[in-house]
Design a protein around this nucleic acid. Structure first.
Lengths: 187, 187
DNA sequence: GGCTCCATGTAAGGAGTTACATGATTCA
DNA sequence: TGAATCATGTAACTCCTTACATGGAGCC
């Protein structure tokens, strides 16, 4: 389809489709209150997105009878429905890659530190930070009903990612400690 | 300190520290050729970053004797060394969160599809795509010497993330299939 | 002489962010 | 009546991208 449509535009469209009729304000809350935030849900992003979706005929504003408040009642058009289904089922090549992780980034520069002891200290620090985040997220996911609901599955995916980071950080610590030991044995 | 320094600026600084003396061009290659790319290594990003790092006194340009080519010889100053160490060892609260994942995003909107059969089809599609990516990455990591080298550890971290996605997608498929079965039993 | 790689840089644009500005509604 | 929340929107800015522009060095 001609002009590229961004992830935020697609997520906005899909959110409207799910919660319709809804307002731009409600869409903002969805993004702002997400426990694994992709976007801030800032007004400067959402309102222009809504305008573009309207301009492309993917959504429409339904006037509310007897309510002259500014609140918009957004619903998706038939074209919008099609676009949502096309988007959720499509996986562009870049989308299957490993995602950038600030902690992995830092580990990739641990060579800059002076000693393995310092590297081990960092890895343990990262482990503790990830454990705290994981604990909070687990509380949120536990509050959801286990099953194939989208919210539960998405939460589970985030949990599995954090658990994998813990596994990896333990591996890293082991490798550094093994190197420490062999240094100690050699000296 | 004072003014915020971005991840790209910090990564550039740490890369120069690691490979010094090196040129902006070499830094670009590092980012452009990364197997888990955070940034494109575009000229429009790197050269301004180099300028800012120079302006802050974190790096300096060493003139090359007898070589009047435009090539810069960048090295890190003492302040730069401090900044690198401070950055790699610091984990801001946001840095320990689960990272945005386009596949998880799509799963979180699978409610938009018409049937569990379609959802299962998507999950299997995502599984296959991730498996392909994982295979390529595994080849690259296998080419590295196993051990506590930063490159190997970073690659291992990316592998573990992708493996966790596979585990999660299998779980999702199971949950959908269980729901299918109970539907079948009920009807 | 032309091709490719090395190397530096600018210009324009995309896609978000924060901060600002405005006003209605609800509730203590 | 004043504060919090609901609700929409604009302006300025950040940070990165692609595309463009330039030129030297090595090689066939």
């Amino acid at each position: 389809m001609g002009i590229a449509i961004t992830e935020l535009e697609n997520c906005t469209l899909a959110t409207i489709r799910r919660d319709q009729p809804c307002s731009a304000y409600e869409v903002r809350q969805v993004f702002a209150r997400s426990s694994t935030p992709n976007w801030s849900g800032s007004t400067g992003a959402i309102y222009p997105v809504i305008k573009r979706l309207l301009g492309r005929g993917l959504i429409r504003v339904e006037p509310q009878a007897g309510d002259r408040r500014a609140r918009q009642n957004l619903t998706v058009t038939d074209e919008g429905e099609q676009a949502v289904r096309a988007w959720v089922t499509t996986i562009e090549p870049w989308a299957s890659h490993a995602t950038p992780d600030p902690i992995r980034t830092r580990v990739s520069y641990l060579g800059q530190l002076a000693s393995n002891a310092q590297r081990i200290a960092f890895v343990k620090h990262a482990y503790a930070a990830t454990e705290r985040t994981l604990k909070d997220l687990r509380h949120e996911v536990d509050a959801l009903k286990a099953g194939p609901s989208p919210e539960f599955l998405a939460g589970l995916g985030a949990l599995r990612q954090l658990e994998a980071r813990l596994v990896w950080l333990r591996e890293a610590a082991s490798l550094y400690e093994a190197a420490e030991d062999s240094n100690g044995a050699a000296s």
